[in-house]
Structures are given as structure tokens and as C-alpha cells.
Write a protein that binds this DNA or RNA. Structure first.
Length: 201
DNA sequence: CGGTTTTGACCGGCGC
DNA sequence: GCGCCGGTCAAAACCG
């Protein structure tokens, strides 16, 4: 029951460079127009050159441009649970109290997951708290930023709906959950039981 | 009443 | 250096 679905997002950051996965969700849809086809794409910063022919992947190419910063990325960014410090930033750069000693901001690899769905909020079993929403350029739908509410788990995701066809929701995950799924979503397990994962090698 | 969403401002990187 | 843009913060509003 509590099997975590981290198999959906393999490739830990120190592992080999995973180019691109494709997941095809095929459920026998009783709904009339709610078929689901998902493409999960590993946005790794090692290989920021090869892109598939997916149209949604083209919309996500700016992520790779954002991600081509540092070469070695490990996830050590657990310090922002302690908010007891006084590093305020809203208000205008009073003091320059950085977070750590020479610890630059490192980004984890992200995984984009394209789903054809009617709703924006895809219940994946975790508890998310929305912390931002921004308007996207060349897109009439805003992008929502979520963060996992589990204490100590700083997994983030962002949900965006394509303006090309508004039936497609792109969910981009960042980080790996270090805890089991909190909610018992039988519906999601039902979807997962009918998933077919295709690996390109 | 506590957790979550909303929303405007701020920050940092990047291109010009 | 300045402006743009994606990402984040945080106070207020909202909601069960």
C-alpha cells in the first residue's frame, strides 16, 4: 500500500545521465473525453542539447536553459526549515545575511510530466502547498508553484497548462520525496496500476 | 483557529 | 547598468 512511486522518477542526481523517459498512461477511459497520455521527460542539465519531437517539450526548453548552470548537483538544501533566522528579503535588502558559508544555490534535476486532464490539480498522493503563481510568457495560463508540506521534504512541483491545447497540463517535479505517500489515493493507485512505462533502452 | 491560497513585491540570473 | 523574466517570499485573505 505504501509503496512509494519514486520509480516514476528514477535517476538520482548522482546517477547516470538519463536522457528522456516516456510514460504512456493508458486507462480504459469510461469518461468521454478524458483520455490521458503522459510524457515524462528528464530535464537533466548534463544533456541540454537533445530534445524529443514532443511539442510540450519545446515549451519546456527554457527549463534547460535555466538548468545549465552548475555541473555537479547534489541535493543538500535542507536548511530552509529553520525560519528562526532573520534573513528577511521582502522589504529591500537591509542586511546581506546569506544562508550558508559559500553554499551556492544548486538546482536539482527536474522531471516534466505531461498529462491530458480536465483539472489542473493532479492528485499524486502527496500534500502540496501552493506558494506562488506567475504568468508565463507566450502562455495565457498561469503557472502554479507547489511545495511538499511534509516536514523536511523540500520537493517542489509546478503545474502549467499549455496554451496550444488547453487540455494538456504539464507538471514539473523537482527533487525526490524522502517519505512515503501520506494520503491513500485509491484512484491514483488505480491509474498507476494501468501505467505502462517505456524506457528508451 | 490553523493550515492553505492569493497576490504583489522582491531577488537573482541573464541578455543586451 | 538596466530591463526582462522565472522563481520565491510573506502578509493578508480565505476556508474547513
Amino acid at each position: 500500500m505504501d509503496n512509494n512511486y519514486s520509480m516514476l522518477f528514477p535517476c538520482p542526481p548522482s546517477s547516470s545521465s538519463t536522457s528522456s523517459y516516456q510514460i504512456s498512461i493508458s486507462n480504459n477511459n469510461n469518461d468521454n473525453s478524458n483520455q490521458q497520455h503522459g510524457f515524462i521527460t528528464g530535464l537533466n542539465n548534463n544533456n541540454n542539447g537533445q530534445s524529443s519531437n514532443n511539442s510540450a517539450f519545446l515549451d519546456l526548453k527554457f527549463h534547460e536553459q535555466q538548468l545549465k548552470r552548475s555541473e555537479e548537483d547534489q541535493e543538500e538544501e535542507e536548511e530552509r526549515i529553520n525560519v528562526s533566522d532573520h534573513h528577511q528579503l521582502g522589504g529591500g535588502s537591509s542586511s546581506s545575511s546569506n544562508k550558508k558559508k559559500g553554499e551556492k544555490k544548486i538546482r536539482k534535476p527536474r522531471y516534466a510530466f505531461q498529462t491530458r486532464s480536465q483539472v489542473d490539480i493532479l492528485d499524486d498522493g502527496y500534500r502540496w502547498r501552493k506558494y506562488g503563481q506567475k504568468a508565463v510568457k507566450n502562455n495565457k495560463f498561469p503557472r502554479s508553484y507547489y511545495r511538499c508540506t511534509h516536514q523536511g521534504c523540500n520537493v517542489k512541483k509546478q503545474v502549467q497548462r499549455l496554451t496550444k491545447d488547453e487540455g494538456v497540463v504539464v507538471t514539473t517535479y523537482e527533487g525526490v520525496h524522502t517519505h512515503p505517500i501520506e494520503k491513500t489515493t485509491d484512484n491514483f493507485e488505480h491509474i498507476l496500476s494501468q501505467m505502462q512505462i517505456y524506457t528508451p533502452f
